[in-house]
C-alpha cells in the first residue's frame, strides 16, 4: 500500500499543458527520482504537490486518505526544499533554523546542534546568512530539512552548489531517511547513490507528460 499516491495529475502553466495525466506512487522507504530536461515540469510537479501551485486535476492519497495538497495535516508531514535556501539574509543560520523549526513546532536545540556538527555547518551557524556562500546556505537548509522530521521530503535539486563531499552527504541523509520509513521525491540529475530497491525514477518530457522508467 503506497503512502503517497498521485493520480491523474494535470497542470497548466498559462496556456501550456505542462503535466498531462501523471500517475505516481511512493511507498514508505522509497525514493522517487524525477528527471527531465529543463522546463519539463520537475519544479512544477513538486510545487503542485506542496499546494503552492494549483492543479487542473489531481487525486492525492496520503497515508490511505484522500486529501488536498493544501491540507494542514498533509503539510505537517512534508518538507519542501526549493532550489533557493529559505533563509533570511540578515539573521544568523542559527536564528533562521530556530524560526523555521519553531514554525513547524519541532525546535530542539541539541538536535539542531548535532546536525549542524554533522553537516559541517557549526562554525558558520553564528554568522549572518548574508556573509555565507551558496553552498553554506544549502547546508543550513539541509539541517532544517532533517531536523523538521517530516516523513515526506520534496527536494528540488538538493545538491546544487554543494561540493562533492556535500553531495555524498545528501545521499547519505536521504538513505537514512528512507531507512527510517521516510518517503522522498527528488528532482535531480545527479545519480543518487542509494539502494536500488529503494529507488524509482520518473522521467518527465515536455509535451507528452511522464514516462515511468523503472
Amino acid at each position: 500500500m503506497p503512502e503517497l499516491s498521485i493520480e491523474n495529475l494535470h497542470v497548466y502553466r498559462g496556456e501550456q499543458h505542462v503535466l498531462r495525466g501523471l500517475n505516481a506512487q511512493v511507498s514508505a522507504g522509497q525514493c522517487l527520482q524525477i528527471t527531465g530536461e529543463n522546463g519539463a515540469g520537475k519544479t512544477t510537479l513538486l510545487r503542485v504537490l506542496c499546494g503552492l501551485l494549483p492543479a487542473e486535476s489531481l487525486q492525492l492519497t496520503w497515508r490511505g486518505r484522500v486529501c488536498s495538497p493544501q491540507d494542514a495535516e498533509y503539510h505537517q508531514g512534508l518538507s519542501y526544499l526549493s532550489h533557493a535556501a529559505p533563509l533570511k539574509a540578515d539573521l544568523t543560520g542559527w536564528e533562521n533554523l530556530r524560526f523555521l523549526l519553531s514554525l513547524r513546532g519541532v525546535w530542539q536545540a541539541e538536535r539542531v546542534g548535532a546536525l549542524l556538527e554533522r553537516l559541517g555547518a557549526r562554525r558558520f551557524a553564528d554568522r549572518p546568512v548574508r556573509s555565507l556562500s551558496a553552498g553554506q546556505r544549502r547546508r543550513l537548509a539541509l539541517v532544517g530539512l532533517v531536523a523538521s522530521q517530516s516523513q515526506l521530503w520534496l527536494l528540488d535539486e538538493p545538491t546544487t552548489n554543494l561540493d562533492s563531499a556535500g553531495t555524498r552527504l545528501v545521499t547519505e541523509l536521504l538513505s537514512e531517511h528512507l531507512e527510517r520509513g521516510g518517503l522522498a521525491m527528488v528532482a535531480t540529475h545527479v545519480s543518487l547513490d542509494i539502494a536500488p530497491s529503494a529507488l524509482q525514477s520518473l522521467h518527465l518530457t515536455s509535451g507528452d507528460g511522464a514516462r515511468r522508467v523503472a
Binding site: S27, A28, L91, F99, V106, Q149, E179, R180
Partner: peptide, 30 residues
Amino acid sequence: MSEGLHTQEVSRDTRLLPKCAAIVVRDLQL
C-alpha cells in the same frame, strides 16, 4: 522498514500561538 521512526510519529507542537510568537520574535530581530 515502514515501522520506523516516522510511523511512531514525531512529537510536534501543533499549537498556533508559539508560531505567531516566533514570527514576532523574528521580525523584532530583523
